[in-house]
Design a protein around this nucleic acid. Structure first.
Length: 773
DNA sequence: GCGAGTGTAGTTTTT
DNA sequence: CTACACTCGC
């Protein structure tokens, strides 16, 4: 071993005569999870049970007891953020020796490192580039065009999604089950996949899925190399195991099978990435995969009040496929989970904003906006809140959204740099040869690419050839020659200038920034700022090479943290975070749970949605406030909504619920449906006045939910406002559905409408997103 | 090569 | 409805 030994004081931490200080304050289960170092271990860590602490302490413990040295540990996470946090917290325990943890990182970054060392065995050079989804899709598009496949019916996105899915399952083209390829372009899926892989090899490139897949191929085909890694990695640790896909699972099993010192940490109840290939099954069958595995449950919650915890536990208990945990806490009861029904989406944002302002002013200690989060199911729900916050001047920050490195202007800048770095990067060439516009149009680009393909050379080389001929119009020829000359100049400049200055120069001289400055579009200002930020962030890297390597794998950048602003984000983005006050708006059937999830994945989809609800509630430390609206605009159409089934599934003892809207089936000839949301006959004063008055709240009471109980006649559970506005349907009503168009209601049963649609003459049963009239 | 006109989809998102 | 991708005609 050439690496020097870590600082001796690590082992001092665990001297027999002095108990290890890092173990102080751990509860018995946490301690067991830290000390069970030998053999396979599954740690089922419920929400808020100190998972990260256990993970980091465990690694520190292995090091402190001398069982392994830092470079003999393999520790994998899903996100860069998680990896970074883990590294920081280990450093806090063991000091600078943590720098030796060179195999702590994301699945992808570790797989990429391994692949660099053995790239030749897989037909790649170790300098291979990693393509992002945009490059990937453009490559596929070219492929489909070359194969004369109708790009309308079979979009590049479709195929990219399929290929990604296949790679997630660990299928190389030759191992693809025949039925899988059948769905695409009349059974050509498999062939196209194989062609795509060939193209990648020619380009000396990998997509994200390849990183793991190539690793698996490598380990399976070359047992001696696998052996090398078996010897290297004495202990393997995996975070968020419930989110692993098949390929990641296979990769782990290959690496861990010999020593069996595999510790997986996760929570089956927080598996929310099934749509992206995660297999909850991986965690559910851990004990079968690793015989003799210890299972340790962390069930003591340190985060939430008991009402919040009980509400979340009650909800998740409805799911069938789970390993089961009983979370408990010593925290006090706190407030019950508040549930509110409102008339429409606007009223909902008004309610939330009011409550934030009230909350901010109350309390003994000063309260901060950044302690409040609004967690939505889908990003279209954010707009209403943003509008309201702008109006009331409440500071807010949208977390997530389009990634910085995925913005067009950042990609353009990167394409210039990639082309400077490697003249052969055809995808980069294609991206920026006419950005900003320099009179090199589509036809010219096609000519160049064709010429390149025919002669088996890169686009840059092809261009150099073409400008020598009179193949191109004089104007185009000059433009292209200028472009090549500029690229050469920048390439020379790269030798003498640091990458930040280089980027600045390129952006100026190419006219890119000028074009943006002239652009009157609403986003051009932001784009310019983004580019400035890009140049700044590049300063931290030694070389252009190092920088480009970094961006392809580390797509996030910690920005804007620390501002005091209400955090608006999707439920997915909230995983791993916690807030004193959490708002959970939009709990309506079809919105949350999402209709699409249920349509596509049935019961499984519904259970995942429920886990998402569970994740949402458990983000709250002190208060959780759920709301739903009776009417909501979806894609500009008014739709009537019903409270989410998840509302009814919350244990009533932990909930304080009321609605400003009655839900009942009323009127002559309509069913009288019992609803938990209707206990009153008088509507009082409501929404009529100019300065909107708060309606008398309707209380939620226990007992069976209305949706199952049909009393008489036909009708539909409807919302009724205090002014008598209602969103009721009756037979014969003309309705509009966002997908199927106009139609007539021909039957009503419970909450389901059977609608005959004009378009296909089809009958369909609909339960959401229907507009009257 | 560009702007106007048409068509179409429209969750969740990391690497 | 709205954002975008793509087509068509000048």
């Amino acid at each position: 071993m050439s690496e020097s030994l870590p600082q001796p004081r690590i082992s001092d931490l665990a001297r027999a005569d002095a108990p290890a200080p890092y173990l102080d304050g751990l509860n018995p289960e946490q301690r067991a999870a830290v000390e069970a170092t030998e053999g396979p271990v599954l740690v089922l860590a419920g929400a808020g049970t100190g998972k990260t602490r256990v993970l980091t302490t465990r690694l520190a413990h292995i090091l402190a007891t001398g069982k392994a040295r830092p470079w003999e540990l393999l520790a994998v996470t899903f996100t860069n953020k998680a990896a970074r946090e883990m590294r920081e917290r280990i450093t806090a325990i063991i000091g600078p020796a943590a720098e030796g943890l060179r195999w702590l990182g994301t699945f992808h970054s570790i797989a990429a490192q391994i692949l660099r060392r053995h790239a030749e065995l897989l037909g790649l050079k170790s300098s291979y580039t990693i393509l992002d989804t945009d490059d990937q899709e453009r490559l596929i598009k070219q492929l489909l065009e070359a194969e004369n496949i109708d790009a309308k019916r079979w979009t590049p996105k479709n195929l990219a999604g399929l290929i990604d899915h296949w790679k997630n399952r660990g299928w190389t083209p030759d191992k693809l089950p025949p039925s899988e390829g059948a769905h695409f372009a009349n059974n050509r899926g498999q062939a196209l996949y194989a062609m795509y892989q060939d193209r990648l090899r020619v380009l000396n490139a990998c997509d994200f899925g390849d990183l793991l897949l190539h690793n698996i191929t490598l380990f399976t085909k070359y047992p001696d190399i696998l052996e090398e890694y078996h010897n290297r990695f004495k202990y393997v640790l995996v975070d968020e195991y419930q989110d692993t896909n098949v390929a990641q699972y296979l990769w782990l099993r290959l690496l861990g099978q010999k020593r069996q010192n595999v510790c997986c940490v996760g929570d089956d109840d927080q598996s929310i990435y099934g749509w992206r290939g995660a297999e909850v099954d991986n965690i559910l069958r851990f004990e079968r995969d690793f015989p003799g595995a210890q299972v340790i449950r962390l069930e003591r919650n340190y985060r939430s009040t008991s009402h919040i915890l009980a509400a979340a536990s009650g909800l998740i208990a409805v799911n069938k496929g789970r390993l089961g945990k009983t979370l408990w806490t010593e925290a006090n009861d706190g407030e019950k989970v508040v549930v509110r029904g409102v008339w429409d989406g606007e009223a909902e944002s008004r309610l939330v904003a009011d409550e934030i302002e009230r909350w901010k002013k109350s309390g003994e200690k000063p309260r901060k906006f950044k302690d409040v989060a609004i967690l939505v199911r889908a990003s279209f729900q954010m707009r209403a809140f943003e509008e309201r916050f702008v109006m009331l001047q409440i500071p807010y920050a949208v977390v997530g959204g389009p990634r910085f490195f995925e913005r067009a202007e950042i990609r353009d800048a990167h394409a210039y740099l990639r082309l400077v770095q490697s003249e052969d990067d055809d995808l980069a060439f294609e991206r920026i040869v006419n950005v900003p516009k320099r009179a090199i149009g589509d036809t010219t680009v096609q000519k160049i690419l064709h010429f390149a393909r025919v002669n088996g050379i890169s686009a840059s080389t092809a261009s150099r050839g073409l400008v020598q001929t009179d193949e191109l119009a004089a104007r185009t020829r000059t433009a292209l020659a200028n472009f090549l000359r500029d690229m050469d100049r920048w390439r020379a400049l790269a030798e003498t200038t640091d990458q930040a200055r280089l980027t600045e120069t390129i952006l100026e001289e190419s006219g890119y920034t000028d074009a943006l400055r002239l652009d009157r579009g609403p986003t051009s200002q932001t784009r310019l700022e983004n580019l400035k930020e890009l140049v700044q962030s590049m300063g931290n890297f030694d070389t252009l090479q190092a920088y480009l390597e970094h961006v392809s794998l580390v797509m996030d950048l910690d920005r804007g943290a620390g501002e005091d602003a209400v955090q608006v984000m999707t439920l997915h983005a909230a995983k791993g975070l916690e807030f004193p006050l959490v708002f959970l708006p939009g709990w309506e059937e079809g919105v949350f749970p999402s209709q699409r999830s249920m349509d596509e994945k049935g019961e499984k989809g519904l259970e995942e949605e429920r886990r998402l609800a569970y994740v949402g509630i458990t983000r709250a430390r002190e208060e959780a406030r759920i709301s739903f609206a009776a009417n909501r605009q979806v894609y500009g159409r008014w739709t009537s909504q019903l409270p989410s089934r998840f509302v009814d599934e919350l244990p009533i003892a932990n909930v304080e619920a009321a609605s400003e809207t009655g839900y009942y089936g009323g009127g002559p000839g309509m069913q009288q449906t019992a609803s938990r949301w209707d206990d009153s006959t008088s509507f009082g004063q409501g929404y009529s006045s100019p300065g909107w008055k708060r309606a008398q709240a309707r209380n939620y009471h226990g007992g069976p939910a209305g949706r199952t109980q049909v009393i008489e006649g036909e009708g539909r559970l409807v919302a009724v406002s205090d002014t008598g506005k209602s969103s009721a349907y009756k037979r014969g009503d003309r309705v509009f559905h966002i997908k199927f168009g106009y139609g007539d209601v021909i039957a009503i049963e419970g909450n389901k409408l059977t609608v005959s649609f004009d378009k296909a003459g089809e009958k369909k049963v609909i339960d959401s997103f229907v507009e009257k009239g």
